[in-house]
C-alpha cells in the first residue's frame, strides 16, 4: 500500500462553510444513524442468520415434531403455528439491538457521537430504527417458508399486513428494554444471556405451540398477562380468523407502557455511562 504524503494545508477557499444548526435535529440525526446501522447490517449479512435460518428451523421442527401429536396433521398445525411463530421470531429479534449497542459502546465511534452536538438519544433511536430491517427480514423469511410448506392465508393480505405491523410495533417497544440492558451491562454476552432468560417465558409461556386450556392455573394466569401471548392470538385472528380486538388492546397497552418506561431509562443510562 502506498503512503501518500499528506499536504498539510486545508483549502482556504473551502467549498463548505462551518455547519449551522438546523431544525428537527433529533429526527434527522436519528435517521442518519439508523442508516448507519442499516449499512452495517447489509455489510455483515451473517448477522441476519437469527432472523432468516433460525425461524425456518423452528417452523420445520415444530411442525413435523409436534404437528401430528397436537393437531392431528401437520397442515392444520402449520396454520395454527405460523402466525404465532412470526410473533416469536420478531420479538426475539429485538434482543439484538441491545447486544449490538453494548458492543458498539466499547468502540471509539460512540465517543465521537457523544462529542457531537446531537441529541443524547439520537444514537439509541438510530440503532432501534435501523434494526427494524431485522424484523422485516424475519417476517419475509417466515412468510416464504410458510407458503412453501402450504400455509393458507384465510383472512386476506391487509389483515395479515396489520398483524405484521402490530408485531413489529410491539417488538420496537420491547427492544428498549434490551437497549437498557445493553447500556447497563458490561458484556454483550451478558446482555444476550439476560435477555434470553426473559425471552423464554415471554415467547414460550404462550399459546404458541399448543392450546392453553390444559395448563395449570398459575401458567394460565401468566399466559393471560403475557403481552406476547396476546400478540400471538391477535396475529392468529388477523391471519387465519378469530378474535382480535381484545388481544390487540393488551398488546397496545403493554407496548406503550414498555416504551414509556424503558426508553427514558435507556437514554438516562446511556448518558451516565462513561
Amino acid at each position: 500500500m502506498t503512503t501518500t504524503v499528506i499536504p498539510p494545508v486545508q483549502n482556504p477557499e473551502a467549498t463548505v462553510a462551518r455547519p449551522q444548526p438546523r431544525p428537527f435535529g433529533l429526527v434527522r440525526h436519528s435517521l442518519a444513524l439508523a442508516r448507519r446501522s442499516l449499512i452495517k447490517t447489509i455489510r455483515t449479512p451473517e448477522q441476519l442468520l437469527d432472523v432468516t435460518l433460525q425461524p425456518i428451523i423452528f417452523v420445520m421442527l415444530f411442525v413435523f415434531l409436534l404437528g401430528g401429536a397436537i393437531a392431528g396433521d401437520t397442515h392444520q398445525y402449520l396454520q395454527f403455528l405460523l402466525p404465532a411463530i412470526m410473533v416469536q421470531t420478531v420479538v426475539f429479534a429485538s434482543v439484538a439491538t441491545g447486544v449490538s449497542l453494548n458492543t458498539d459502546l466499547k468502540k471509539g465511534v460512540f465517543d465521537r457521537f457523544r462529542s457531537l452536538p446531537i441529541g443524547r438519544s439520537a444514537p439509541l433511536i438510530g440503532s432501534v430504527l435501523g434494526d427494524l430491517i431485522r424484523y422485516v427480514v424475519a417476517t419475509v423469511s417466515l412468510a416464504v417458508c410458510g407458503l412453501v410448506l402450504g400455509f393458507q392465508l384465510v383472512t386476506g393480505v391487509l389483515p395479515a399486513l396489520a398483524a405484521v405491523a402490530m408485531t413489529i410495533g410491539f417488538a420496537f417497544c420491547l427492544s428498549w428494554a434490551f437497549v437498557l440492558l445493553g447500556m447497563v451491562m458490561r458484556e454483550p454476552g451478558a446482555v444476550q444471556g439476560t435477555a434470553f432468560m426473559v425471552m423464554f417465558p415471554l415467547t414460550f409461556g404462550t399459546g404458541m405451540m399448543a392450546p392453553t386450556d390444559t395448563l395449570p392455573g398459575w401458567l394460565q394466569t401468566w399466559v393471560h398477562i403475557n403481552p406476547v401471548a396476546h400478540a400471538m392470538e391477535a396475529a392468529r385472528g388477523l391471519m387465519i380468523g378469530g378474535p382480535v380486538a381484545g388481544h390487540l388492546v393488551w398488546v397496545v397497552v403493554w407496548g406503550v407502557g414498555l416504551l414509556a418506561v424503558f426508553a427514558p431509562l435507556a437514554v438516562r443510562a446511556y448518558r451516565r455511562r462513561t
Binding site: R36, T44, R112, I118
Partner: peptide, 29 residues
C-alpha cells in the same frame, strides 16, 4: 470541538466516505 480518541474511532463497517458523510450530517450539513 473535534475529538480523535486514543483508538481510531471510525466505524469499520462503513466506507471512509460514509463515515465522513455521517459525521457531516450529524453536524447539520
Amino acid at each position: 470541538i473535534g475529538l480523535t480518541g486514543q483508538y481510531a474511532s471510525v466505524d469499520e463497517d462503513l466506507t471512509g466516505m460514509q463515515n465522513l458523510v455521517l459525521i457531516g450530517q450529524l453536524l447539520d450539513l
